[in-house]
Structures are given as structure tokens and as C-alpha cells.
Computed example of a mutant assay.
Amino acid sequence: MNNYKLRLQKELEDLDLKIEKLNNFIEKNEIFKTIDLKEQELLKEQREIMTKYANILRKRIK
């Protein structure tokens, strides 16, 4: 794999870890339910966009 694809792979690995942590916070952490509803929606939107970005990186790696 060339340097370009290695950088993309590293970026994807880092992003996947962040998505996993965010998803765990949203789905499993009771603190999430206590924060402002607008903030909850923004975090869910962030997760959606991060997931779309990860999918784009996967396509670029192929």
C-alpha cells in the first residue's frame, strides 16, 4: 500500500475509534440523557456526519 493509502487508512482508524466512543456515549452513558436536548441532537448529527466521512474514506481506500 502506498503512502497515500496508508495515510487514509490511519485517518479512518482514528475516525472509527472516535465514532465508537461517541456512539458509546450516546447509546450507553446515562450522562447523555441529562444534557440539553439541542446538544443531544448536535451530537447525534455529528455522529451521522462522521460516519458518512468514514464511509467516504473507505471508498477512497478501495
Rank of each mutant, 00 (worst) to 15 (best):
Q9V: 09
K18E: 09
N23R: 05
L15K: 13
F25A: 05
N23A: 06
I61S: 06
K38E: 10
L8V: 10
K10G: 01
I26M: 09
N55E: 15
E27Y: 03
L15G: 07
K44G: 05
I56M: 10
M1D: 08
E41N: 14
N23Y: 07
Y4K: 15
E41G: 08
I49T: 06
I19A: 05
I56Q: 09
K28A: 03
K44F: 06
I26F: 02
L15E: 08
L6R: 14
Q40S: 05
K59D: 11
E30T: 05
L17Y: 07
K62G: 09
L12F: 04
L37C: 00
N24D: 09
D16N: 15
L17A: 08
L37D: 09
I31G: 00
I35M: 05
E41A: 11
L57T: 08
E39C: 04
E20N: 02
N3Y: 15
L8F: 05
R7I: 10
T51R: 08
E27R: 04
N3L: 13
K44L: 09
K5R: 11
N29C: 10
L6E: 13
F32M: 02
F32V: 00
F32C: 01
D16P: 00
Y53V: 05
R58M: 08
N3S: 13
L15C: 08
L8W: 07
Y4D: 14
E48A: 13
L42G: 01
L57Y: 06
N23L: 07
K21T: 04
I35T: 02
Y53N: 08
K38M: 06
N29A: 04
I35K: 01
M1P: 08
D16F: 02
Y53H: 12
F32A: 00
N2C: 09
T51I: 11
K59W: 11
Q9G: 01
E13A: 11
M50V: 02
Q46L: 12
E41P: 00
E27Q: 11
K28L: 09
R47P: 01
K59P: 01
A54N: 02
L42V: 08
M1A: 10
K10V: 07
D14A: 08
E48M: 12
M50N: 04
M1H: 13
Y4I: 14
K5A: 07
L12N: 05
N55P: 06
K10C: 03
E45F: 04
R60N: 14
Q46T: 13
N23C: 03
N24T: 03
K18H: 04
K52I: 09
F32S: 00
K28T: 02
E48K: 13
L43P: 03
K18C: 03
Q40M: 01
R7E: 14
Y4F: 15
N29Q: 02
N29Y: 06
I31P: 00
Q40R: 10
L57E: 03
N29R: 00
E45D: 13
N3W: 12
E20P: 00
D14I: 01
L8Q: 12
K59M: 14
K38I: 11
Y4R: 15
